[in-house]
Simulated assay, not measured.
Amino acid sequence: MTPLELADHLEARGFRLSVQDGHLIIAPASRLLDADRALILQHRDTLVALLTNDYSTLPDGWHRSPGLPSRVVRIQGGHLFDSVCFESEAAASDFLERLRQGEHPEEAMRNAGRTHPTLKAA
């Protein structure tokens, strides 16, 4: 499993992935299986790099997450504000297209086959 597949796999199972002070945080950690922990250790550095993308150059709004094609991020003031993981890259693309057509984000998520929220940061 690649680091991207691992991140998507964990998020699809309801885990939240984030980085705080350079440390990878996966919650709830109590639900991680031994196999998950082994893969996380194997791919830790890449996961940290994927999760700490520099969003400062992106304008406010929804964008495809760099490095995770099935994830869409919402940027506000150059910072990650919200992130949504979809079952596929196609569903993420559909979501972004629905937003461009003026659909409300919550409706666009439902219509694009949204699986679950992944991260909320202020």
Rank of each mutant, 00 (worst) to 15 (best):
D34L: 12
A35I: 10
A35G: 06
D36E: 05
R37L: 15
R37F: 10
R37P: 00
A38C: 05
A38E: 12
L39M: 13
L41G: 14
Q42S: 05
Q42Y: 00
H43F: 15
H43D: 09
R44Q: 08
R44G: 00
R44W: 03
D45K: 14
T46L: 12
L47T: 03
L47F: 01
V48I: 11
V48C: 01
L50I: 11
L50D: 04
L50R: 04
L51D: 05
L51G: 07
L51P: 03
L51E: 02
L51W: 02
T52K: 07
N53R: 09
D54H: 08
D54E: 04
S56T: 06
S56H: 05
L58G: 06
L58Q: 09
L58P: 04
L58R: 09
L58A: 13
P59D: 12
P59L: 12
P59S: 08
P59V: 14
D60Q: 11
D60F: 10
G61F: 04
G61L: 09
W62T: 11
W62A: 11
H63G: 05
H63M: 08
R64G: 12
R64V: 13
R64Y: 12
R64W: 08
P66A: 07
P66D: 03
L68Q: 07
P69C: 06
P69H: 05
P69D: 15
P69G: 09
S70L: 07
R71E: 12
V72L: 00
V72C: 00
V73I: 02
R74T: 05
R74V: 02
R74K: 11
I75M: 02
Q76Y: 10
G77F: 01
G78A: 08
